[in-house]
Every structure is written in C-alpha cells, then in structure tokens.
C-alpha cells in the first residue's frame, strides 16, 4: 500500500488487540449480523469483554479510543459528516445530487489507480492526490459540458459514474493483494483511519467551511438568481467554480479516508432532511452539519457494537435521519398552516 502514515504499527496493533483487530466494525462490505468475521473477536489487552461472549463492550471501545484506533475514525466520520452536510445543502439546492456520487466514484477510481501504479510500476502517487486529480477532472468535465450538451446533463453525470465505478472495479481486480483496501474505499468499510487521512479531512474541511462562510451570500445570490447576480457584477462563474472545486476537494479527501458510500450519503441525506424541515438556509446549514456529524459518529458506534460495515452504517443512519425529518416536516407545515 502506498504509505501515508500508519495509525499504529503492526506490532502495536498486535500488542493491543492480539493477532487481529479484535471486535468492532465489520470490514466486510457484505457482512450481516450473523456473518462470521475475518478473525475471531479478541478483547484488547487491559479491556474487559462484555458478559455476552463476542459482543463488543464499551470498555473495549474506550480502550481502543485511548489508543487512537477508534478515536481517529470516529473523529474523521464526524468531521466529514459536518462538512459534507454543509456542502450538501448547496449541492442539493443546485439540483446536483448525483454530481457528488459521480465525483466520489471518480475519487475512488483515483485511489485505485494510485495503488495499481504503485504495485505495477512502483510509481508512488499519493492516493489522495490521485483521488483529487480525478475528482477535479470529473468536476471540470461536468461543469464545462453541462452548459453545452444537447443531452440532459444527468446523462453525463451517469456516464462518469458508470465509467468511474467500472474502472475502479477493473483496476481493483488487477491488484488482488490490495483489493481489501479498494473495497474499503468503494464501499466505505474502512475501520481504521490513518492520522494523515484525518489531518487531510480536517484541513480540507476547514478550508471548505472558511470559503463557504466567506462567500455565503454570494453562493446564495448566484444560485437563487444567477442572471440577477451577474448584472450586479457578482463573480457568478467563479462562485460556481469554487463550489464545485470544494466538492471535488472534500469528496476526494473524505473518500480516501472513509469511502465513497458514506461520502455520498453525508453529502445528500442530511441536507435533504434539513431543507425539508427548515425555511431558513442558515438553520438548514446548521441542522445538516449536526445530522451529518451525528451520522458519522453514531454510525461508527453502531457498526462497532453491532458488527456491521462502517460506511453502510453511517449511510443508513443518514437515511434514517432523513426518514424522520420528512414526515416531521409535513407535520410542522400542517400545524403552521
């Protein structure tokens, strides 16, 4: 695997958890509650297992947290959820939900290509950079061509999604020894997050939040009434470009860290829930951030205690929030009327 700073050395992990990582979130994309894990669950040293054999306990989680094994992925999930929740509000308002899906798949292909080139040509390309390059490329094609195509813009989004997904699977097939990492990226089953990935997620997220905060009114005006904003000499094209570059940046970095599936879920479901429920953009941004962060953190805990894949758990929790908010919005509107 291309390096990027391991969270803990193999010896440290063995010391903490025995010969494997012990109980916790499943690393299998197809895991079910009854599915056997890749290795038997082992309690970390110094931690007590729960009374029910094989069921992860809080003390186990707390011990892993202290070691940083669970802390980093939880923080990563929370931070990614918050930032993608905020960004997702603008993505949903721009009616570009599937652009995020296509860009996240392109980022996944970038990571897969980085692994492939490392193994076959010994060319060291940091996976995050490869992910960013392909995500930006996909974004550039989408934003450039969408204005010029005679076909509906969705067709190009679908094409990029299809090409990136197929490409990642094909490339992954040729790097069998790393296929687990590829699956982790594509399906969001990564249990561990390296400090470097966490740092990148925090860094990219901070940049995203700063730009969104600084250009908040501009992004709104340019989206609500682009022609009116242009006549007022707002830099509408630059604002549009900035938004999609931020999407590409955030998606590529978070895809490498937590996988494509939860990234897409965080960028869509919390924003939809917030926009359905609230009549103010600022409040919708705050709620989307909160729901995204909760889905990221609680999703990991759910995966840990019930031994499900992490990404799917985080995505499911995002959808659960949406399913709660939709009828709630209807009730609130009914009472307001």
């Amino acid at each position: 695997m291309p390096d990027g700073g391991e969270a803990l050395s193999h010896d440290e992990l063995e010391e903490a958890f025995g010969s494997d990582l012990g109980a916790g979130p499943s690393t299998s994309a197809t895991a079910t509650p009854s599915a056997p894990h890749e290795a038997p669950a082992q309690p970390p040293m110094g931690a007590e297992r729960s009374a029910v054999e094989g069921v992860p306990s809080w003390s186990e989680f707390a011990h892993g947290w202290e070691l940083g094994i669970y802390r980093d992925p939880v923080l990563c999930g929370v931070f990614a959820g918050v930032v993608l929740g905020v960004l997702g509000v603008f993505v949903v308002l721009r009616r570009a939900v599937f652009v995020t899906a296509a860009v996240s798949q392109a980022a996944g292909l970038g990571v897969a290509l980085a692994f492939y080139l490392e193994l076959t040509l010994h060319a060291h390309i940091p996976p995050v950079l490869a992910a960013l390059a392909l995500a930006l490329g996909a974004t550039a094609v989408l934003t450039y061509r969408m204005q010029r195509m005679r076909l509906p813009s969705e067709t190009l989004v679908g094409l990029i999604y299809l090409a990136a997904s197929a490409g990642a699977i094909l490339v992954g097939d040729r790097i069998a020894q790393e296929s687990h990492d590829i699956a982790s990226i594509l399906f969001g089953t990564a249990v561990l997050v390296r400090p470097m990935d966490l740092a990148l997620v925090v860094g990219a997220g901070t940049i995203t939040l700063i730009v969104i905060s600084a250009g908040y009114r501009g992004f709104l005006f340019a989206g609500f009434d682009p022609e009116g904003a242009s006549v007022h000499r707002l830099p509408v094209r630059l604002l549009d470009l900035s938004l999609w570059v931020l999407v590409a940046l955030e998606v590529s970095v978070t895809t490498r860290a937590i996988g494509a599936l939860p990234v897409f879920a965080f960028a869509v479901a919390p924003a939809m829930a917030a926009l359905a429920l609230l009549e103010r953009v600022r409040w919708a941004l705050a709620l989307a951030a909160a729901l995204g962060g909760l889905a990221g953190g609680l999703g990991y805990l759910f995966a840990f205690f019930y031994e499900f894949p992490v990404g799917a758990s985080q995505a499911t929790l995002s959808l659960l929030f949406l399913l709660i908010c939709l009828p709630l919005a209807r009730v609130l509107r009914g009472s307001a009327a």
Binding site: L93, G218, L220, D225, P226, E227, L234, P235, R280, V281
Partner: peptide, 29 residues
C-alpha cells in the same frame, strides 16, 4: 429576470431576497 429563472427551491425569507439587492461585485464577503 423572468420568474422561471429564479430558483424558488431556496429557503429564503422575503427579507433575505431584498437584501440581495445590496450586494454588488465582491461586497458579499
């Protein structure tokens, strides 16, 4: 512009829409 060019999906208050009139150039920052 014509009404179809204004995106009513945006959850904005009437006051927010009026305030947009104040922004010109880079004043939104």
């Amino acid at each position: 512009p014509q009404r179809k060019a204004i995106d009513e999906l945006y959850p904005l208050l009437a006051r927010d829409v009026v305030r947009m009139g104040l922004d010109r150039g880079w004043s939104f920052v």
